[in-house]
Write a protein that binds this DNA or RNA. Structure first.
Lengths: 414, 414
DNA sequence: TGCGTTTGTCAAGTCTTCTAACATTCTTTT
DNA sequence: AAAAGAATGTTAGAAGACTTGACAAACGCA
């Protein structure tokens, strides 16, 4: 059935088909032929030949060996030309900073991660990112001029158009700081700035657990909790960029105090920080638990709790199950409202695996509508800790590839 | 900034610009000139002349008197040609059935509403709708052949593509019934089927309190409670059509039993049925209340409670305030997750006005994130009881107008 | 080797849009 | 009142994108 309803201001983009073809090639694993592209886009094969030749002249895609089919002339498979250039993906978390260098087919060439503190404010943090990027480039014998674009994620609500965060709950000093403009003028490369959970959703959609899904929610459970939404295959930011900010939903009015000043926030009962706090409390309460033997209580982390739980420690298992149940309540609400086909749970704490996931699934089944709950799949992130970083890479590649494809007449760099 | 990211299967539509122009004309109050259309769509004035002439030849739009501006040649204003035809909008609620007849500019020619019971099942209900439609046409001296299309809303999760409801909580017997196919073959007119809350959102977006907003949530508080979402100017249905089904979110685990079998559902504490139940309980408890003097308790309705509350009855005001507070909790969750610019509260119970709206606003302010809560506007539906009906009309017109515009070479019917 | 099948390309024609000039119709200025 | 200024709408020619229909290319299978 054709679509009859167009929303208000129509966005006219030049060469819209060329860019659509480029994205189909990007996101089809194993590549596609001209004939299949023509079929999927409802264009003639002749038109597709013209479009593809244009992309080939720009060296942004390449032909690979023919693939055998049942009968007929074997198709020539098209794929992104990996050697055409490099991009950078940065995941700036609350407590860690990850930078990845990839080629044009999003294959990771190298990656560095360091501990980090986002509360230092924009200037020191961005300087640290610059230093780490320089280190990564030197280590790989590369110059900044070889990088075509940069994608970055930060743990706060973003208005992408502006390239800055707006009233973030956990990024003191960053409100209104022109992050993107700052980076672009310092590095002289186009930069895309997004929320880290949104990028997690994008990363898992492109290369992970939600590949090609139309509607996808990504829940990032790190030291805090956030969600990213991909609706109709596009990042959904809401009207002020704070869509998916579920970390401070009130889950239990009588729950513990949250950093944000409120009580019983999801983040205060299910985040990594909250899990670590409960571990300390368990040790302090004198119950018999493996956690007591895992070093000084004030240094216990969510990772320790996960390890103890896997070794059968009951107290740890209870802490994790409780966190999962609370997450399940929030996710059930999202499933009811927004009815995605897939919910991907990622972030550091999600690496715990089924011990966390099972209580989430149970709670969602119990509290969601039959229809929505029956079809939703709840999975751990396939890209593990790299979801957001890869999402940043996707955004960086979006800039780089389409910028090159826009140019008329073949460019060099073979 | 241009858009770099296209989702998977690109939908190619013929004459995309022509249809976009048509929609811009439709949804611009007071009409637009060729020059302004060219500006808004980033096309040349020459191209716009060609497109507009095409639409004029089909009689789907018309020119009106020039409008004076500061200086220069006055523009020729274009608008939908109201006399080009008629459409029907049907709002099939749980307890009422409304049918509206409008011209092509969505002006209501006539309208009938009758009490109704959707639990009778598809065959009797659809027969009743047919009878009412026939009555409406006869009353206005019209034949079915003069109707170009029909839009209909029903209170259950819809998969528009299929034209049927899937596992609806309150429409027993309708699951999987081919509603649209049935109507189309019976009436021989194209039919669009949607959820009633979605249509409420669409109606308020097109002609009401959310005119032109990019992101809009519509909360329908009738005998039950539902929500419709308009994201990026498009109805969002989710993967199985049950997006926005908030009526059975658990709000208060210790709350009253709901028809659905669960306890403490939003609908069971805030819907019109729930308000009426609380009124009966208030009378039964022997408290002094105006409600005692409003006829037999078992016939009290939400409308009676509203009337009593407006006359200063404390018990009634408390019932309404409580319903508003619970609605506020659910809406706060939606605001946090979706971050819309406008939330429109409609449906029968919403006609109570500020007595209901103020507790909603207070609760949302208290429980939402600073950023999202600061910018969200919460308003009563401007179209009052007609939101969904007008949304159905919008859908019907989408079919009719674009079908006519698609044709090549002028059609008659002046 | 020939046939069926599918892929990719070419040439001619159609359709859409752009540029650049021009006509139109108003207000403002002289 | 006439001229200048300003914005709208139209026309003609050219550029581009896409389609159709034919054809060449490259495989499996008989």
């Amino acid at each position: 059935m054709s679509q009859f309803f167009w929303p208000a201001p129509f966005q006219n983009v030049k060469n819209i088909n060329k860019h659509a073809v480029l994205d189909l090639i990007r996101f089809t694993p194993g590549g596609v032929s001209r004939a299949e592209l023509a079929l999927r886009m409802d264009l003639s094969r002749a038109a597709m030949t013209a479009i593809v030749n244009d992309l080939l002249e720009n060296n942004v895609i390449r032909e690979t060996e023919s693939r055998n089919k049942q009968s007929g002339r074997p198709p020539i498979i098209l794929e992104i030309n990996p050697a055409r250039g490099f991009v950078i993906g940065i995941d700036m978390g609350a407590t860690h900073l990850t930078i990845a260098l990839t080629d044009f087919s999003a294959r990771v060439v190298d990656e560095i991660e360091i501990p980090f503190d986002i509360t230092q404010g924009p200037r020191p943090c961005l300087a640290q990112a610059e230093a780490l990027l320089t280190e990564l480039l030197e280590k790989n014998d590369m110059k900044l001029s070889q990088i075509m674009s940069i994608g970055m994620g930060v743990p706060g609500p973003i208005v992408s158009k502006e390239g800055m965060v707006v009233s973030p709950p956990i990024m003191p000093g960053w409100d209104g700081y022109p992050i993107r403009k700052d980076m672009e003028s310092k590095w002289n490369i186009p930069v895309s700035l997004n929320n880290d959970a949104e990028l997690g959703a994008l990363g898992e959609w492109a290369y992970g657990a939600g590949r090609g899904e139309e509607h996808l929610a990504y829940i990032k459970v790190g030291s805090g909790v956030g969600a990213g939404l991909l609706l109709n295959g596009q990042i959904y930011q809401g009207s002020t960029g704070s869509a998916g900010e579920i970390g401070h939903l009130t889950i239990d009015e009588n729950g513990p105090l949250c950093d944000c000043g409120s009580t019983g926030c999801l983040e205060a009962v299910s985040g990594g920080k909250a899990i670590a706090r409960q571990a300390r409390e368990a040790v302090a309460s004198g119950h018999r638990t493996l956690l007591s033997s895992m070093g000084p209580p004030e240094e216990l982390t969510a990772r320790d709790v996960a390890a103890a739980a896997r070794r059968g420690d009951l107290a740890s298992q209870q802490i994790i199950a409780k966190a999962g149940t609370y997450l399940g309540i929030a996710i059930a609400g999202m499933v009811n409202i927004f009815n995605p086909r897939v919910v991907v749970v990622g972030g550091g704490v999600a690496q715990i695996g089924d011990l966390l996931l099972q209580p989430i699934r149970d709670t969602v089944q119990r509290r969601s509508l039959v229809g929505a709950a029956k079809t939703v799949k709840i999975n751990t992130a396939v890209l593990r800790r790299r979801s957001s970083t890869m999402g940043a890479v996707v955004q960086a590649l979006s800039i780089a590839l389409h910028q090159i494809a826009e140019k008329k007449g073949g460019d060099s760099l073979p």
